[in-house]
Design a protein around this nucleic acid. Structure first.
Lengths: 344, 344
DNA sequence: CTGAAAGCGCTAACAC
DNA sequence: GTGTTAGCGCTTTCAG
């Protein structure tokens, strides 16, 4: 046996190598399978044996190789999540909630950052699927044909988040962005606003909100909004610059709908600098319901999203499927709330 | 051969299974090894063969199993990063920078969220090491004996970030938190401030800043600061409440050093609510240099950290080591800048 | 430039 | 309860 290359490892292992399950087994005087059981189904192992093995594991600092385990069992205990960015604060709580819930059940989240607008989603997905995740969580419902194909081929649970569709790849947890736009239009018109503007990134979801917003204004016999649309990601500085440009060219709105809270802050700043009173002369609405908006700017309204709930529900859906159950719900609308600081 | 369980797979694979390298090889009429080469060392394969194989890969949608690859090659092309939280915005740009740079070189970042105060670091590290990352990036320099032991045993590059020490586990990229405290004390004293306060989370690094701050005040013959210290994580609301408590009990400082920007915003708000003028009557200093602070509050000063640089340099250090070179620098001080809004 | 053999470290499935 | 056998899907190493 020692004549073959690579053979002849002993319980001591090649000096630089990590301890293996086999090493532990030898040291404990049992078969590898028993050690494996202690790790995965301890209830199947006699208490005495179990304790002895646990001691060896402890003493040697053995760390099970999950690559090997995943390969053999075809279960990686890995869930992949792909988001556009974490610099955009709206996604972090969703990720946090996902991570927490999955961790409780022994799954690890593998996070992928796709960039705007999903520039790397394709490449990222390949890289990620190569790790054989047990499930995938995506942001949004728009994916290339290739992405859809690969995901179907992977035959694993998929949750799409932060949007809604009647035809999800598998499951979807989110809310209607067009619905947000519509609701905001109604809200502002209801408040008596009449000269509308929109400052937005060209992100797909932001554009859906824009669509709903403008369409609803038309329906309500209102003038079309003055729009500034730019390439994502949006920043506070961009919001400020956009508002400046708008005012400079003579568009003086009494209501501005921004595609993010950061943007809204920028718009607010520019507006204040010019002595326009907020919200008296102008209403400014952000999107996302981030903490800064809620606390620092009593003048700023926002569309509030329960960001954690999205993660929590997505995790629950995934876990149900991985537990062999049917998904409790394939389509979950978490809704949204317009928080108007004028009225509260 | 077909008599053994599990044997007898053909190029078509068991219906529900993913395509394997062997399937591709059969379809292309070559050995698995040649396909493997096309994937990893394409320059070793004849152009015609390569093209043929690439076509099969394309057509079948083959996704290499990186678990198997990692197991066989002992290189996972995975780098693990452990941060306390992404809800605390200071870390996200570091993560982003790390992710980007590593991705360029074909590595994927696996993010672990340890919680405050590193509650899960131990368990997380085990879970993470089980995936056999090629390198690990940690936040901070304080780790349990167990964590240190496991990391040494793993024999992989390790970068500690967001702090500094003369005795890193391996490499360290950050700055001195005590130094920040000292610099802030000097700065405020130099500005003529005389009644100091500190609002801080009990996070290790925040406490190091506190230490430097108070020690330096003593050295400069200043009165000790009034302190409010609470459990991490810190929020804007906590900052506000802390300031309220402080003022209510009669401590009226003319300078407050906060352990985060969010906190500083809260303090600012409470202060303004009470009609105290900022920065005239009171200087408020945050920590982290986040965008909101820089833009929304001309009254708020901050300790600015080049958060991306930390990630970028950490990535560079890791890549150098993985490329077989010695680390260019084992200890990197990225420094910090006090941005005072009174003067700019 | 290509292939064959062996094995990475683990677990499924079955025997005892 | 515990052990045995046969892979999981890839890469290493060496042969041609």
């Amino acid at each position: 046996m020692n004549t073959k290359p690579g053979a002849g490892r002993t319980a001591l292992a090649r000096a630089t190598d990590a301890i293996t399950l086999e090493d532990v087994a030898k040291l404990a005087g049992v078969s590898p399978m028993t050690v494996s059981r202690v790790l995965n189904r301890p209830e199947l192992v006699a208490t005495a044996t179990r304790r002895r093995i646990r001691q060896v594991i402890e003493r040697t600092g053995y760390v099970p190789n999950l690559l090997a385990g995943g390969l053999a069992s075809r279960r990686s205990r890995l869930v992949a999540a792909i988001v556009p960015s974490i610099t955009n604060g709206v996604f972090v709580e969703t990720i946090q909630a996902l991570t927490d819930r999955l961790w409780q059940e022994g799954y690890q989240l593998m996070l992928g950052l796709a960039g705007y607008p999903a520039a790397r989603e394709d490449a990222l997905l390949s890289a990620v699927l190569g790790r054989r995740p047990d499930a995938v969580c995506l942001t949004g419902i728009e994916h290339s044909a290739d992405v859809r194909k690969r995901l179907m081929a992977a035959r694993i649970p998929v949750v799409e988040t932060w949007d809604l569709t009647p035809t999800p790849l598998d499951m979807v947890v989110g809310f209607s962005h067009e619905g947000v736009g519509i609701a905001v239009a109604r809200h502002l018109v209801g408040k008596g606003r009449r000269r509308f503007a929109l400052v937005s990134a060209d992100d797909v979801r932001a554009l859906a909100r824009k669509r709903g917003f403008t369409a609803e204004l038309v329906r309500l016999d209102q003038p079309a909004p003055a729009c500034v649309v730019f390439e994502a990601p949006s920043t506070l500085a961009l919001g400020r610059a956009s508002m400046a440009a708008m005012l400079d060219r003579g568009d003086v709105p009494d209501a501005v709908f921004c595609s993010s809270d950061a943007l809204a802050h920028g718009v607010l700043e520019e507006t204040r600098t010019r002595g326009i009173r907020v919200p008296r002369d102008i209403a400014i609405l952000g999107f996302g319901g981030l903490e800064f908006t809620r606390h620092t700017s009593p003048a700023l309204s926002t569309v509030d999203i329960d960001r954690s709930a999205i993660g929590r529900i997505a995790a629950e859906a995934i876990l149900a499927r991985l537990g062999g159950q049917q998904p409790p719900l394939r389509i979950v609308d978490v809704g949204f709330t317009i928080v108007d600081r004028e009225t509260t």
